[in-house]
Design a protein around this nucleic acid. Sequence first.
DNA 1: CTCTTTGTTACACTGCTCATATAACAGTTA
DNA 2: TAACTGTTATATGAGCAGTGTAACAAAGAG
Lengths: 122, 122
Amino acid sequence: MLIRIDFNSDEAFYVQLRNQIIMGIALSEIRDGDNLPSVRELADTVGINMHTVNKAYTILKQEGYLKLDRRRGAVVSVDSDRARAIAELRSQLREAVARAVCRNVSEEEIAEVLKEVVEEFR
Amino acid sequence: MLIRIDFNSDEAFYVQLRNQIIMGIALSEIRDGDNLPSVRELADTVGINMHTVNKAYTILKQEGYLKLDRRRGAVVSVDSDRARAIAELRSQLREAVARAVCRNVSEEEIAEVLKEVVEEFR
DNA sequence: CTCTTTGTTACACTGCTCATATAACAGTTA
DNA sequence: TAACTGTTATATGAGCAGTGTAACAAAGAG
């Protein structure tokens, strides 16, 4: 799985890392039990500091995507708290849909975009 | 339209303001042509500084939700750039769906949550 | 046992954002 | 004229983002 940092983005580095790893899990590029690079190794390959990678890993651990082990490093381990996942999904959809509704995007168009997005993960 | 700040939230004050105003427009609590409180008045009523309100208004102007007029103050004026709106929607849905997919939320469940959310704005 | 690697923690520093405060300016309105 | 609008400028304190250096404890490899 390829990870890279956009140094011109306004998104924080650790946020970019977090989002790319979540995307990698969703796309099955990395699966439960897979190892991620060590904080030092990933920091070297993408060209940022060790602590920034560690911050991303720590957040992913708190959010239930990774487990951190002194022996094996960072291991993908998705905590399937479905109730929490659905609540989170609803909150994010509410914000996205609100903006679309303001712009007169119809229900059908919103549903169509969702359908296209869902297919990316199939 | 009622606006209030959660002083214990980790979201920045100006972000809370921005989101609530967008939500107000989406729910038709405020409509095109309506006036918002002046920066000083809103700052007083919600208990924050004038510049923080001004920052929220300025961002909403840049994002195409408001027009700022020295005569009338802040006026709701939604710029209907549908192409931009749909691109923005797709990007936000991609992130939200990715997280849900990681948690094994099914396509049907995602579509169901979307349906519920859309109905809030009808 | 020694060396290396792992996550983890601590401290220090720069630069930036958030939020506040005070003040002033130019244009509008009563 | 007086009171209001958004706008701009300057300053301050708090906190975050990112880097750098350094060390620690636990585990694995030689």
